[in-house]
């Protein structure tokens, strides 16, 4: 099963490497990992997407906790949370397709970030599932290049 894990880590060089190499050394699945500073510049938040049965996920969480540079490890999967991913994608553009493409961008609540004679670059934000669908739908129009940020996630605030 897919799990989304949020980890607060020391904002130091090598921390990402420690986490990533722990995953590879122990043979854990690592679907995506993203990292950025938090409101406290000494602390970064990592969002990790991984897959595994309960036994494996429990090991993943414990092994993450065991690293000295991790401060807090939370499995968000079964808690209320928001999960988002950013997609940047450049596609071919032609007279015959541009109308449809613009319509689809609207459907996916995307934004045009760059446009040239024969190509268009868009951004779409959404859950990783929505991003997968977006890519599938646009594929027939000719994707030149794409970049995904990997998921970032956060606990939903208290009401």
């Amino acid at each position: 099963m897919k799990h989304i894990i949020s980890v607060l880590v020391e904002n130091k060089f090598g921390t990402l490497n420690r986490v990533a190499s722990m995953f590879s050394a122990r043979g854990f699945n690592l679907a995506s990992i993203s990292i950025g500073e938090t409101e406290d510049p000494e602390i970064s938040r990592m969002t990790i997407v991984t897959r595994g049965d309960d036994q494996i996920i429990s090991q993943v969480l414990k092994q993450l906790n065991r690293l000295i540079d991790t401060i807090k490890v939370t499995d968000l999967t079964k808690q209320p949370h928001v999960e988002r991913e950013l997609l940047l994608m450049t596609m071919k553009l032609s007279r015959t397709t541009q109308h449809e493409i613009f319509e689809l961008i609207n459907v996916f609540k995307g934004k045009v970030v760059d446009i040239k004679q024969k190509s268009i670059t868009i951004e779409v934000i959404g859950s990783p599932d929505k991003i997968n669908t977006t890519i599938d739908i646009f594929r027939p129009y000719g994707i030149r290049e794409l970049a995904r940020s990997g998921a970032v996630a956060i606990h939903r605030g208290e009401s």
């Binding site: 036994q55 429990s58 090991q59 092994q63 906790n65 065991r66």
Partner: peptide, 11 residues
């Protein structure tokens, strides 16, 4: 003392 040792090889 190390929680990662628990349930690692044998439940």
């Amino acid at each position: 003392i190390d929680p990662t040792n628990v349930d690692k090889n044998v439940k």
